[in-house]
């Protein structure tokens, strides 16, 4: 099973998401802002990163770009709310492999993660 870096400033969202991922047997490491995410990415070398967009310190788009500069092959999926379409588009242009919309249902999250890790 894979190591997944979960980045969200809301602890509730991390908790909920982490539950789904651990249930699938993945190891979850967490970060609560973009700057931490970049650090954690370098330290933990996760196979997949789920990246929230709206965050303090460094937002998800910036973090995505920073991670992609360090590892162009990094698999990153954006986690975004409805109404952030243009941000998701920016993220995809910047190399995001996928996105999951909040509030996500478990099934969708599982499908997205499985597809990305396949």
């Amino acid at each position: 099973m894979a190591k997944v870096l979960l980045v969200d400033d809301a602890a509730f969202m991390r908790m909920r998401c982490a539950k789904v991922l651990t249930k699938l047997g993945h190891t979850v490491v967490e970060a609560e802002n973009g700057a931490q995410a970049v650090d954690m990415f370098e330290r933990e070398k996760p196979e997949l990163t789920l990246l929230d967009i709206t965050m303090p310190e460094m937002d998800g788009i910036e973090a995505l770009k920073a991670i992609k500069t360090r590892d162009p092959a990094a698999k990153i999926a954006m986690v975004s709310a409805m109404g952030q379409q243009s941000m998701v588009l920016d993220a995809i242009k910047a190399g995001a492999a996928d996105f999951v919309l909040k509030p996500f249902d478990e099934e969708r999250l599982v499908a997205a993660v499985s597809k990305l890790l396949a």
Partner: peptide, 20 residues
């Protein structure tokens, strides 16, 4: 790599993001 496609990818501030 999708990043390297020459499509109009704005990389204004993004390029400035150095290693924290």
């Amino acid at each position: 790599s999708p990043v390297s496609t020459p499509l109009s990818i704005k990389d204004g501030e993004g390029a400035g993001v150095g290693p924290t």
